[in-house]
């Protein structure tokens, strides 16, 4: 067996989630090659080559790959596909964008967002916002898979010494052009890999009140998240959304503040180790998944919590 992983990177840094996907690949077994497309900095290639368990790093350093346009990445992945039994990517917005295109070209059914490797052909994945878990097996010649990062430990980033091979560019498909990004420039840890997450919901009432959560986040080294209702209301921007259709997080500690606990929100956080809920409605469904529930007005409880943390 041999596995190709499309790595995620931004701003010249290998994204941590790629390490989780490598662990999923290790559980399948076989040689693991890492594809790094569009890394002008060279840092990503270097980081990729030093990961334990990586056999080879394939570097396609052309500007057209820099922004992960699916139309350009697909031919590159297809040019490599014949050598692999599995082609994998993290279930990030990049992986989700590109992999189905590759699967369709190869006429295979993709397996999205796996959370468990049963064997090389059999995987478990959540359906219905995680309210059911489906185990599926594939007899396709090549398995196209996206991986839910939070379901696998991160592989060791050091200790490897993989060979780096440069690839020919497959060229610009001429269908799409990257214009610009509006990315948040937070000093806080990234939401999906932060050890602690504190999220606010509609109960926060407005965006300015998120300051209260940010202060606590800074004391705990936490990331800040939000429910869909908070994002829709414009309190915070879309990259904060946790849930079925936002980000999936599984930190050591998740604090839900002014969030009712709709199944679509639970889908994104119920695998957290410890869940805390602060809500003034003692009947709110969030308390059914909370290890520690505090029935209180958040405008009293959150400032107190900040003080208590010292």
């Amino acid at each position: 067996m041999s596995i190709l992983i499309l790595s995620d990177h931004e701003n010249g840094q290998l994204s941590p989630v790629t390490l989780n996907t490598i662990t999923a690949a290790t559980e399948i077994g076989g040689d693991i090659d890492l594809l790094v497309a569009g890394d002008a900095s060279g840092n990503v290639v270097k980081a990729a080559a030093s990961i334990a368990n990586v056999s080879k790093v394939l570097a396609a350093n052309d500007k057209i790959f820099e922004n992960g346009l699916a139309e350009n990445l697909t031919p590159l992945l297809l040019s490599l596909s014949a050598k692999y039994s599995h082609i994998m990517a993290s279930a990030t917005t990049t992986g989700k964008n590109v992999m189905p295109r590759v699967a369709a070209e190869l006429d295979v059914m993709q397996i999205s967002d796996i959370i468990k490797v049963i064997d090389a052909n059999t995987f478990q994945r959540p359906i219905y916002a995680g309210n059911a878990l489906s185990t599926v097996s594939s007899s396709e010649a090549v398995k196209i898979i996206t991986v839910r990062g939070t379901a696998f430990e991160a592989a060791t980033a050091k200790g490897g010494n993989a060979a780096v091979q440069s690839l020919q560019s497959t060229g610009d498909a001429g269908l799409s052009t990257y214009l610009k990004s509006e990315l948040s420039s937070s000093e806080r840890p990234e939401l999906t890999s932060a050890p602690i997450v504190i999220s606010g919901g509609r109960g926060m009432q407005d965006g300015a009140n998120f300051n209260m959560l940010e202060k606590i986040a800074d004391k705990l080294g936490a990331a800040v998240g939000a429910s869909r209702a908070a994002v829709d209301a414009g309190f915070v921007s879309n990259e904060y959304q946790v849930g079925q259709t936002g980000k999936v997080v599984a930190p050591d500690l998740y604090m839900a503040v002014g969030i009712s606990g709709a199944i679509q929100h639970l889908a994104g956080m119920k695998d957290s180790k410890i869940i805390v809920a602060i809500n003034k409605d003692g009947e709110a469904p969030i308390f059914q998944v909370a290890d520690y529930g505090l029935v209180a007005d958040l405008f009293d409880a959150v400032p107190q919590l900040e003080k208590e943390l010292g």
Partner: peptide, 19 residues
């Protein structure tokens, strides 16, 4: 193309406490 081996309920979380 895929065979569904089984569909099961996720493990439910143990009940917590109110502080």
């Amino acid at each position: 193309r895929l065979t569904i081996v089984k569909v099961e309920e996720p493990e439910s979380r143990a009940a917590g406490i109110k502080v």
